[in-house]
Design a protein around this nucleic acid. Structure first.
Lengths: 216, 216, 216, 216
DNA sequence: TATGAATGAGGCTTCATTCAT
DNA sequence: AATGAATGAAGCCTCATTCAT
């Protein structure tokens, strides 16, 4: 076990420089994935992080485990953003909007796409991170529902997956205009989320935990 | 005659069996891309199409040219869907909705993602196909605008890119629920497109031709 | 059996257009080999000959048999050149020189190199062609020996292999200067062949038939 | 220090085992080229060198760069031979003869043939190696000219290209007799190089630097 | 007969992962 | 712990050869 969770340091608390390396690798991975997609060469990630490739493997025994950490990292960033939104905005729908629009900055090329790379959905650290994100997201959604501004037939799954897809970066294109476009779409989507609902949705309210992966 | 008509008569009109193979390859490619993403092994596509790998290369000298044809194929399917929607639905916004929701069936994993693979944006056949799609899409949008049901600050680029992203499939997940989820998001998005606008959008009305690819 | 030998037409005497195709293929092959080396793609040869690839295979069931015919063709050209030299030049060493220098025009990239491609050395047509070349070459050598101008310790093998090597073309380089260079070398070599011998040669007089190929 | 010295210290001085592997690959390449020609499969070279194919690619990113190193290696061997000849033989023409005859051992299948494979003629390391070879070869030629034993109308280009061609191996044939034959031809060629010249040469004195490659 | 199309085997190259320093 | 090097498996693509029109 090698991670340091929110609840406390695990096993061998990791030397200072090792921890720094680990963090640099995760950040480099996130950037490289945004730029080249989730299939970017691991050597490239190592190069960007300024470490040898073997160092990357010491920290993450394979690609899956690295992607897992990137996913956790992004989850945590979203959690932060959501908390800030909760604190900063008094109006519940405004807070929700802020989270959604802020997500365009996180540009991870779609959380969803990472799911397709064999990431272990049952990983405890991922579940913990997801729970944290869910808790605050549900709080946001709950308040917005309660305020009567958010249509009642949408759940966290609806929100997060849609946001993820609408902010998918296209590898090989420069992001400049892309971010603007994403923000336009997110705003339109937010408008569709407001009450009164202008349509009836097919299916039913979706929660994030409902997503599951099939083995190939 | 050497021109490419809408139906696709090529230079030397292509032997019957060869044309059949070519079509099978494009269809297999579309499915494989939806399932595994645009980096799926070409050998895998050939296997699915039931042809030898070299046959694939005879028709498409490289991945780019195959992806290009897939893109054209999907464009054409969308054009068909849009034409059907125009003819079948009297109400302009209903017609637009139909096109958008139908797109969930096309599941190409996001047209946008294909753009990142070196596809030649200046290819005449692609431009022709895009123009056909644009023409009918603009007709749909124009009528919806004229009917006063569609917010005035959105263009074809907004619509098509968002639809493309919202219907992105996640490689490695089975599509069952995915399609339902996509339909929910598309419906919410449509609701956000209705008048009166519930917000002001950042940036400006986007048209498809505005999208461009940057060399790496 | 499909060849037409000097002794007379074999089996089905070959339709006129078929014979013409066959000839064009051999010539195209010779040129392509000079330009790209003996491993040039057979499709390229067919293209140059202006026939479909399958036509090439109808005449020559595999690469080896085509190379064999090229070899025979070149042998025959050399035989012709040698006969012309015999007839045109009264001085025996002059006749020999003429043959040798003329060989620079044949530029087959070294007959020798073709031997390395699995050509059947026992092929009757090749042997016949070689015998014809040998007969006239030996006649030339014999006269030169008899005239006292040619050192006595060289045989046809020495002559032909050396000439072949000195006229090897380098694929990918333009031949312009190359031919001049080859002529310089051939002339120097001829000078070394004159009496009186300026050295004693290692090994012994070599005849063409001594060359043999080892299976890989 | 980042310069390349005669002995070859590279940028980061290369780990001991890596340097050994690199050397083994070059040697295996030389042998394989002699045996099968310059188009021999790189996998075959790796197999002979006793390394994995990817190791070969780590050291030489493509065939061209490997061939370049082989060329440099052979150049350097020739330089060594020439220096030994200079030191060991007092008679200038004897020294020249020794170099020429020794070249039969190097059996690279003709340096010239390598030139046709896209090797970068402007590569600094190659130029340096060529300069070293030229320096000592010109010294040899110069002394022989000065001694009055070498015909005045030949230059280093004449000598080295002819030697290269006369020592071309035929892929697929075993070298035993081949070497003897090559020595016979080299000796005859040397005899043609002596004074007094027995003929006038076409063209003019050629220097190695005059050789150039044309793009296809 | 002549041809365009199809094919499998094989070469080139990359990359995730493991090994040795 | 960190690194550069090594490796085999797998993908891309070509080409000699065979097939179907």
């Amino acid at each position: 076990m090698e991670t340091t969770t929110v609840k406390g340091a695990m096993c061998p608390p990791l030397r200072a420089d090792a921890a720094r390396n680990r963090q640099r690798i995760v950040l480099a991975a996130r950037e490289a994935i945004v730029e080249y997609g989730p299939e970017v060469a691991l050597d490239e990630i190592a190069r960007r992080a300024g470490v040898g490739n073997a160092t990357l493997y010491r920290h993450f025994p394979n690609r899956r485990s690295l992607l897992l950490q990137v996913l956790i990292h992004v989850n945590d960033r979203i959690t932060e953003r959501a908390q800030q939104a909760l604190e900063a905005e008094h109006d519940p729908f405004e807070a929700l909007s802020r989270l959604v629009l802020d997500s365009a900055e996180e540009r991870v090329g779609g959380l969803c796409r990472l799911l397709g790379f064999g990431i272990d959905h049952a990983d405890p650290a991922l579940l913990a991170s997801r729970d944290r994100a869910l808790a605050v997201t549900e709080e946001l959604l709950g308040r917005a529902h309660a305020s009567g501004q958010l249509r009642p037939d949408v759940g966290t799954g609806d929100l997060l997956v849609a946001v993820s897809r609408l902010t998918t970066s296209v590898p090989g294109t420069t992001c400049g205009d892309d971010t603007v476009l994403a923000r336009r779409h997110l705003q339109i989507f937010l408008d569709g989320l407001r009450t009164p609902p202008r349509s009836q949705l097919p299916g039913s309210k979706t929660h994030l935990a409902d997503l599951k992966e099939e083995p190939r």
